[in-house]
């Protein structure tokens, strides 16, 4: 009986970041090859910044075969939206911004109360934009390690004409043979970095020397502590009566809508230090920082069924 051993194999294999990058490039090119009008979702966040580098590696010296699009809640950190615009301009690629506030004006998004997080309402604006431009595929930077419901999502994930995801009726996905076919009005969500973890993302940022919005690095910020979370004090999220505002050294692990993104306490002011912190952390990325995902154990699954990314 033969026993296997890595040392005995002479064949070269790719280091893990190269493998992940090669897989992501392959997926992006499949979307470009199979779909007629795809779009790449770009928020200015770290995952979508990696996605842009992957798109450069996939398609340069040509132009990207898709525009970039951001669904803006109107409640994003200025550092991030400034970065978004700057990066798109540097790449010379077309950036489309569609705003939840416009959906509110149209009456298609109705908030339960003025302070309700607009994060989940991005689904409505996204579906409106898909219809406006006739996109047949949206390429996104979601990762399976972010959240339980994502662990079972396909790399090419089919959505019906209401943008709904049916976790019990997903297309089987075998080998690297992706099926991005959709009828008119239906839509494919493609996730090239499905197999990446938060640590992989940071290692890739380091290796590629990618620039990030400043709020990813440790900085002083006024915050309050609320139910175990650190809540940044902003115009949109003022301190409640009786809460004590303190200046804390923090950084953001995910950046999204201001009303639902919390920073973590950290001194990590460089990518190297963030990698060291990420490798040893005992708290998941969304667990500590996304106030909206904590609502219930099945919160993400529910939102995805409704068309959320």
């Amino acid at each position: 009986m033969m026993l296997f051993n890595r040392q005995q194999t002479q064949l070269k294999t790719l280091p893990h970041l190269d493998w992940l990058e090669a897989e992501a490039i392959h997926i992006m090119r499949e979307v470009a090859g199979q779909c007629s009008n795809p779009v790449l979702l770009f928020s200015g966040g770290k995952d979508s910044i990696c996605m842009l580098r992957i798109a450069e590696k996939a398609f340069r010296p040509g132009r990207f075969p898709f525009p970039l699009m951001h669904i803006d809640t109107g409640h994003n950190y200025k550092e991030v939206t400034d970065f978004r615009d700057k990066r798109a301009a540097e790449l010379g690629e077309r950036l489309i911004v569609r705003s939840v506030e416009d959906s509110m004006k149209r009456g298609t998004v109705v908030l339960k109360h003025a302070n309700e997080s607009r994060n989940k309402h991005q689904s409505v604006t996204l579906l409106e934009a898909i219809e406006e431009f006739g996109f047949d595929a949206c390429i996104g930077g979601a990762r399976r390690d972010e959240e339980k419901a994502r662990a079972k999502e396909r790399i090419m994930s089919f959505r019906d004409e209401f943008g709904q995801w049916d976790p019990k009726n997903q297309r089987p996905e075998l080998w690297d043979l992706y099926n991005a076919r959709a009828h008119k009005g239906e839509n494919i969500r493609a996730f090239p970095i499905s197999n990446w973890t938060e640590l992989d993302v940071w290692q890739y940022i380091q290796r590629e020397g990618l620039e990030l919005p400043s709020i990813y690095f440790a900085h002083q910020r006024p915050i309050v502590r609320r139910q175990g979370s650190i809540v940044p004090v902003t115009e949109l999220t003022p301190a409640k009566a009786g809460e004590q505002i303190i200046d804390l050294q923090v950084r953001f692990r995910t950046v999204g809508d201001i009303t639902c993104t919390a920073p973590v306490e950290s001194d990590a002011d460089s990518v190297e230090k963030i990698i060291a912190e990420t490798a040893t952390t005992t708290i998941t990325e969304r667990g500590a920082t996304r106030l909206d995902d904590q609502a219930s154990e099945a919160a993400m699954e529910q939102r995805k069924k409704e068309g959320y990314f």
Partner: peptide, 10 residues
């Protein structure tokens, strides 16, 4: 940790 990562060894 010791298993070959490639799907073939030839």
């Amino acid at each position: 940790e010791a298993a070959p990562a490639a799907h073939t060894e030839h």
